[in-house]
Simulated scan of single mutants.
Amino acid sequence: MTVLEALADHERVTDIAEVTGLPKSTVHRILRVLVDHQFALNVGGGRYLGGPRILSLSSKVLGRFEPAYYADAALRKLQQETGYTVHLGLLVGDDVVYVAKVEGSKPYHMPSRVGMSIRPHCTAVGKAALSWTDESQVREMVRRAGMERRTAHTITDEDALVAELRAVRERGYALDMEENENGIICLGAPVFDHAGKAVGGVSISTLTLEPWKQPVEDLAGTVVKVGEEISRSFGAPAATAAVRS
C-alpha cells in the first residue's frame, strides 16, 4: 500500500524506496505485482506510473461517494465540543447546498434543513469556500447570480466581497454576522476534496441572543480543525487540508 501511494508522486524505484523506507529489491518485487494487476505501468528507464486499474477503481468509489457519511463523525464531534448547530454545505453551481446538519444542544432549532440551497456570498460556509476560489471566478459568479440583500448586514458590493474573502483566507475562517438571517450568526471553515479544491464549508451557528461562549479565535480553531478532518476524509492532499499552515 505504501508503494502504491508513493506512485502518486514518484516514478523512479530509487525515489519510491526512499519515501517508503523499503529496500529497492522489495520495491521492485511489489511493483512487478502491481504491474501484473494493472495498478502500475512500467514505462521503461526504471520509471513507473499509476495503472488503469487505479482510475477505474477511483471512478467507482467517487460514483458512490456520500459526503455526509464520510463527514458524519467529525460533524457530531464538533457539535459535542461546542454545543452549537453544525452544518456541512457544498458548492453546487452558484449556490451552497446543506448536505448535513447536526442540531445543537439548545431547545430551539435553526430554520435550516438538509437540501436547502443558500447563497454563498452571505453565509459562513459559502464565504469559507469562496475564499479559496479564484477571484475572477468569484466575480463571474456574483455577476451571474447577483448578490441578494438578505438582511441589513449582507455584503452586496462585489469589491467588498472580494476584500472580505481575502480576509477570510488570511485568518482561515469565515463569519456570518446576521448576513443571511436576522438574529443568527455563524462561523465556518473551508472543506477541500481529493483534488485539493475548496468544495464547501463546515460551520457552527447560534443566535445573537446567545452569543459565542468562547472567544471567536478559540472556536475558529476548533472549526478549522474539523474542516481539516473532513477534508482528509474526502481525500484532500495533506498540505491542502491543513489550511492554516
Rank of each mutant, 00 (worst) to 15 (best):
V61D: 00
L62A: 10
L62T: 01
L62E: 12
L62I: 02
R64L: 13
R64E: 13
F65A: 05
F65T: 05
F65E: 03
F65H: 02
E66L: 04
P67R: 06
P67S: 13
P67D: 12
A68R: 05
A68E: 14
Y69W: 05
Y69I: 04
Y69E: 13
Y69P: 00
Y69H: 13
Y70R: 04
Y70V: 08
Y70N: 06
Y70M: 09
Y70L: 13
A71S: 00
A71T: 06
D72F: 01
D72L: 01
A73N: 00
A74E: 10
A74C: 00
A74S: 10
L75R: 03
L75E: 09
R76F: 00
K77R: 12
K77Q: 15
K77A: 11
K77G: 10
L78K: 05
L78Y: 08
L78F: 10
Q79F: 00
Q79N: 09
Q80T: 12
Q80W: 03
Q80R: 14
Q80P: 04
E81W: 05
E81M: 02
T82D: 09
T82K: 04
T82G: 13
G83F: 00
G83Y: 03
G83P: 05
G83W: 08
T85H: 14
V86P: 08
V86G: 15
H87P: 11
H87G: 11
L88V: 08
L88S: 13
G89A: 15
L90T: 08
L90V: 03
L90A: 14
L91W: 01
L91D: 01
L91C: 05
V92S: 15
V92L: 05
V92R: 14
G93M: 04
G93I: 00
G93F: 02
G93Q: 07
D94Y: 02
D95P: 06
V96Y: 10
V97D: 10
V97P: 02
V97G: 04
Y98W: 10
Y98Q: 15
V99W: 02
V99F: 06
A100Q: 07
A100P: 00
K101D: 02
K101F: 04
V102F: 02
V102A: 04
E103R: 06
E103K: 02
E103Q: 14
E103A: 04
S105L: 07
K106D: 14
K106N: 07
K106V: 11
P107A: 01
Y108R: 05
H109A: 15
H109I: 07
H109Y: 12
M110K: 06
M110I: 14
P111V: 09
P111I: 07
P111W: 07
S112E: 08
S112Q: 10
R113W: 13
R113L: 11
V114S: 08
V114D: 12
V114G: 11
G115E: 05
M116P: 09
M116K: 11
S117K: 13
S117V: 02
R119A: 13
R119W: 03
P120T: 05
P120A: 12
C122A: 15
C122W: 03
C122V: 08
T123K: 00
T123R: 13
T123A: 15
A124S: 15
A124C: 10
A124L: 09
V125G: 06
V125S: 14
G126R: 08
G126V: 06
G126Q: 13
G126T: 07
K127Y: 03
K127C: 09
K127L: 08
K127A: 12
K127V: 07
A129W: 03
